[in-house]
């Protein structure tokens, strides 16, 4: 199936080759690390409500109140880095069967089990940094049909008309949004779908909103065969909508193409932090 770990296999062969010549070295042991994605609105925990809910408990930087009915994103190509600079890359593969799809995590606020991402086979060591992709990169979109969390029949967020994946999305309502009710919208809806993965030379408007994000831990944690630490990551909706660019829900309430999502995508680069770690 569609594997991208030829390089790592080669590396493994090389590493095994070397260790065969160096019998004194300790055998590598492996552990796991959990990344917990905890979505927030400023200081508040996210509480999703139904479309008919009329309580607007959150307030953006423009003083507009809003609520949330849906929130989620894709995390992919996770790398963990040790304090001495060694990088462990989570395996990433795609393919038509669910089991072919590895290294893609669809974090969704309404599905609690999607909020803990377990990275397995992590070589023992002292780790203090994580890097991940927010969204699905060109290399994987261009492999075609996929299963697992990318499968649109399995809740995957695929744009078919501009084929690619929605990397981050929030939906809710705000009295500031003039959007009228329609077949796909409640009254006053705010829907921000951030996608787009194409880099086209000579067209700065065909945007790549996929972001590579690196977060440093407040303190390092040790992975070992009997130690499974956890990094507790906050994703702050207010930073996504109030960061470099302030979203005004009276004008920005329906983002459904790559170009319209550029500002939120820029904000998202600063919306994640490792709040704390558990050894």
């Amino acid at each position: 199936m569609k594997t991208f770990n030829i390089l790592s296999c080669l590396l493994a062969v090389v590493v095994m080759g070397f260790s065969a010549c160096d019998k004194k070295e300790e055998p590598t042991t492996y552990g796991t690390m959990d990344l917990t994605f905890d979505n927030r609105v400023g200081e508040d925990e996210v509480q999703l409500v139904s479309d008919s809910d009329t309580a607007f408990v959150y307030t953006n930087a423009m003083g507009q109140v809003f609520n949330l009915t849906k929130l989620g994103y894709y995390i992919s190509r996770v790398e963990l880095k040790t304090t001495d600079g060694k990088v462990y890359a989570d395996e990433v593969t795609t393919g038509p069967m669910d089991e072919d799809v590895k290294g893609f995590y669809h974090v969704q606020e309404d599905k609690i089990n999607t909020q803990i991402v377990t990275i397995a086979n992590v070589p023992s060591g002292q780790y203090n940094e994580v890097t991940f992709t927010l969204g699905v990169e060109a290399e994987y979109v261009q492999q075609g049909a996929t299963g697992g969390v990318l499968d649109p029949a399995n809740g995957g967020w695929l744009w078919n008309w501009d084929a690619g994946y929605i990397g981050w999305a929030m939906e809710g309502r705000s009295p500031s949004s003039p959007k009228a009710a329609g077949p796909n919208n409640a009254d006053n809806s705010v829907k921000l779908h951030i996608g787009g993965w194409k880099d086209i030379a000579g067209n700065s408007m065909m945007v790549n909103n996929v972001k590579r994000i690196t977060l440093t831990f407040p303190s390092s944690v040790e992975v070992a065969d009997d130690l499974s630490p956890r990094a507790h990551i906050h994703m702050d909706v207010l930073k996504a909508i109030d960061g470099h660019h302030m979203m005004d829900f009276s004008t920005t309430n329906g983002v459904h193409n790559p170009a319209a999502g550029v500002d939120v995508a820029h904000n998202l680069e600063g919306a994640f932090e490792v709040h704390h770690v558990h050894q």
Partner: peptide, 17 residues
């Protein structure tokens, strides 16, 4: 066609392709 009785999006797309 694919050595599995699973009928899913990916294999449906692969077959049409």
């Amino acid at each position: 066609a694919f050595g599995t009785s699973t009928i899913n999006t990916g294999l449906l797309m692969d077959a049409l392709a």
